[in-house]
């Protein structure tokens, strides 16, 4: 079970979090994307071996959506930051 260092709450067990998918996938402009581009946004996901950027919601904690750098092989966690701060 992962130990996730929430920037707001400190290190917390994985069971307090909800996984939210690939954080690198950005929502395209719906009025300006082809069916193919939109379908790719909805349905296509990579399954990287090694470094990955993931969204996790601290649902049993501060309710921040976090962007977590995780190595899918070793589970090593790199940077953890609030998704909101990442995009503003």
């Amino acid at each position: 079970m992962l130990l996730i260092p929430c920037p707001h709450c400190g290190p917390r067990p994985e069971t307090e979090f909800v996984y939210g998918g690939d954080a690198r996938v950005k929502r395209p402009d719906p009025s300006n994307s082809s069916d193919e581009q939109w379908a790719a946004y909805i349905y296509e996901r990579e399954n990287p071996k090694g470094q990955h950027q993931e969204l996790w919601l601290h649902s049993a904690g501060c309710h921040l959506w976090l962007i977590i750098e995780r190595d899918t092989v070793t589970h090593a966690i790199g940077s953890v930051r609030a998704a909101r701060e990442d995009q503003q």
Binding site: R27, L55, L57, H63, L64, W65, A83, R84, Q87
Partner: peptide, 18 residues
């Protein structure tokens, strides 16, 4: 209820944080 709240938070924090 709880899934909707997560969905709303995702929209607010990830999709339209501004």
């Amino acid at each position: 209820a709880s899934a909707v709240f997560q969905h709303i938070e995702h929209a607010l924090q990830v999709l339209w944080p501004g």
